[in-house]
Design a protein around this nucleic acid. Structure first.
Lengths: 350, 350
DNA sequence: CTGTTAGCGCATTCAA
DNA sequence: TTGAATGCGCTAACAG
């Protein structure tokens, strides 16, 4: 900052007091139109910009919220981030994006360290944090959780109904004529039993049970991460081990994309030999060859709801009980699981 | 914040003055070991966190830098963001991620509005800002540019040599036996003549000229954006218009991914009928079917260099002349342009 | 409707 | 090496 233009300078220029300028800047209603105009003119001429640090120090609010996701370069989070930034913008809030790498330590830092009181609230997509820590942190700063559901957690939370979505995905494969549907993406060693992986596995099992089908543990493949390479590796394992599946429900699209690649490498035809579906409706999936069927969460709704919940908390609603919002989702059938009918162009939908 | 623990509280607890605590917190050297220990203990017990707003108000520095990219959900920027956050972390800096949507207005906001003095520096991937605005803004806050090169701009800048990269990509296609290589991604209506599009087009033309080949304007396809759908649309246009190409150099991987999809829709075989190459080495490309050849920029180097340049500026180097750093890049040949030899698995490299 | 004033928490003079 | 006092720019009482 070369020249520091302060409220005071504007006041002098406009021939009013500091308070009046402050009122104008903050859109306070009771200012005479003429005064407002004069002040605004002074602001423009001087190029005044409020000093956020000072404002924050004084008011205790910064207008900045943090969004913490495991990995920014996972397409789902990248897309979601975009919507969160957009939603926050609508509330005049700035978003500080953080990457936790799914590490407990980094998630804790985001919650507690909280940038030295710089943050008014936090939207967190937790992977490794338990309910106790969450409760403790929520006392310090408003928090809204995304995606994972710490069993009846102590804080606000928005996510799709993962069990229902997983069940619908599996049933879609069954409806398409699959008889051996694999589930790809289990995380049995995850610290908490209620993460998305467990929920999606539950939905998968429910679907099988609903059709009177037995659960074959050999068809449930665990992964270390939700990246493409793990999807590819898991498929390789599946194909090498005994009787191969004729359908694969991947716990997210990224895994599915890796799976598609591995299937192609083996010369397995999709969807003829194996039908594939994922979750997330990531843009890559729409343009993959074959295009990827998926359970599409309403990302926009998730983002705007999360920000709204957070804003509510930030404005007073501090001690009210936690709210749980279920976002919508939708089955999108594309080439990877479409059997019998001629293929549509993925580009038609994009 | 429930309980506000201040420097003063820590001082009282440790039985020293505020100044001493401040010295410890800021790692000032001249503090007696015993004192330091006692203070540190008090800090830990009280869970003291420095108030960034106050610090920033007083010192004029916030420890926050902004990264502004056109679209967060474009894979290249998502991946780059990750590296920038990482690099900034190494300098004890926090990154505020911004999305400009490539809009001049939003880029200007990021530069000038600058969050009310909240930002110590800015890493900007400009699309619509011209040299004059840049120069003006750079006087207000340290800026480092990414990717685009405003002709001999007034500010620090890091990017790959786009002309050379484009030329190498085109030559690779020519070497693979292509005789009609199209260039996909031109942006003739771009406000500035020196954006990446123009540079890559230049490299493409240089490659042709180097081989004594004529430039066929019909093979240079403009796009509105660098998204998959535009890549698909451009290929459709190319295929419908007269004599089709046997090679396509896409100005980035996302366009190439869209192109691959459109090619598949038309039953055109890649690389047999048409070889394809992109730029960026985005993860999707590694798992696409066929896997995508690309010019891979060293993203890590780009990010760490950008942050380093910015840090240099922030520490004094305010008026020194602008520096230009060329980051490395590398040709990565995958299935989409590999002819003659058996296909390798993309997964082998990932 | 507008002016005056007192601090928010910290880094930083200047002394001691 | 440490302590005491000052003010960064702003908002929120409180007057007027």
């Amino acid at each position: 900052v070369v020249v520091a233009v302060r409220l005071q300078d504007v006041a002098a220029r406009a021939g009013v007091s500091v308070k009046t300028v402050s009122n104008v800047v903050n859109g306070y209603v009771h200012v005479r139109p003429g005064t407002r105009e004069r002040v605004q003119a002074a602001i423009d001429e001087l190029g005044y910009r409020p000093n956020l640090s000072a404002r924050s120090l004084r008011s205790g609010r910064s207008g900045v919220i943090a969004l913490a996701v495991p990995e920014l370069d996972m397409p789902y989070f990248a897309e979601l981030t975009r919507f969160v930034v957009q939603a926050a913008d609508g509330h005049g809030l700035t978003v500080l994006v953080d990457q936790t790498d799914g590490l407990a330590e980094r998630e804790r830092l985001v919650m507690t360290g909280i940038r030295g009181h710089l943050i008014d609230g936090l939207v967190l997509s937790p992977v490794a944090t338990d309910a106790d820590e969450l409760a403790a942190a929520a006392g310090q700063v408003p928090i809204v959780l995304l995606g994972e559901k710490v069993t009846q957690g102590p804080v606000d939370h928005v996510a799709i109904d993962n069990v229902a979505a997983a069940r619908a995905a599996t049933e879609h494969l069954l409806d398409a004529g699959c008889e051996r549907v694999a589930a790809l993406g289990d995380q049995p060693d995850s610290p908490q039993g209620s993460g998305v992986a467990a929920l999606r596995r539950q939905g998968y099992e429910d679907a099988l049970a609903g059709r009177g089908l037995p659960l074959d543990e050999g068809l449930v493949v665990p992964v270390d991460s939700y990246r493409r390479e793990e999807g590819a590796r898991a498929v390789a394992r599946l194909l090498d081990d005994g009787e191969p599946p004729d359908g694969v429900f991947c716990f997210n699209d990224t895994l599915a994309l890796g799976a598609l690649r591995a299937l192609a490498d083996r010369g397995v035809r999709v969807p003829e030999d194996v039908a594939v579906i994922g979750v997330d409706d990531v843009e890559d999936g729409r343009y993959a060859v074959p295009s990827l069927s998926t359970m599409a969460p309403d990302k926009q709704q998730i983002a705007s709801t999360a920000v709204q919940l957070l804003v509510d908390r930030m404005r007073g609603r501090r001690d009210a009980g936690p709210r749980d919002v279920a976002a919508g989702f939708e089955l999108v059938v594309r080439e990877s699981s479409r059997r019998g009918r001629p293929a549509e162009h993925a580009t038609a939908r994009a």
